[in-house]
């Protein structure tokens, strides 16, 4: 191993989207991602899964990472490769990820007893996407990477 950075995929195409941290704008990310996925040839049911996952990830970034501060941005990077679409969603990290929340599987009986019926987003994303990874964004905020494979 030389330790050098691997060469970029020559057919990689990147679309970058910067949104205000305001609920409702996740719709813009959903529509952008679905437009790219359709162009790449994803089946309609996979496009719907992608839209749901993107919506959950951007909503988390707005609500938790950026704590609803509309002046903060959510950055969505869509990377189209030959056999997959990678979606990175990054916030500005006012509130860091709770690692336990990223691996917890909600128990429906417990959730039904709580006033707040939320907390399903990350579980849902893991169910819908082929790969999910949590990390720190280059900007220092929270980042989630979701990968969806193109089935031939």
């Amino acid at each position: 191993m030389s330790g050098e950075t691997p060469p970029r995929d020559p057919v990689e195409r990147v679309i970058e989207l910067r949104l205000p941290s305001k609920l409702g704008y996740e719709r813009v990310a959903m529509d952008t991602a679905s437009s790219l996925a359709r162009r790449m040839g994803f089946q309609p049911d996979r496009v719907e899964s992608l839209k749901t996952a993107v919506s959950e990830a951007v909503t988390n970034a707005i609500e938790h990472g950026n704590e609803h501060d509309a002046a903060m941005k959510v950055v969505v990077l869509l990377t189209a490769r030959a056999g997959e679409l990678i979606v990175d969603v990054a916030d500005q990290g006012r509130k860091p990820f709770d690692h336990n929340q990223t691996i917890r599987r909600p128990v429906i009986e417990e959730v039904l007893e709580q006033d707040d019926k939320g907390g399903w987003g990350i579980w849902l994303i893991r169910e819908l996407m082929d790969e999910v990874e949590f990390s720190t964004a280059p900007s220092g905020g929270n980042q989630i990477r979701m990968v969806i494979h193109l089935e031939q």
Partner: peptide
Amino acid sequence: ASLELSLPSELGYEVI
């Protein structure tokens, strides 16, 4: 309220 978008200079991406 603002939106920023950056895309490859390749015909077809205007649809995105």
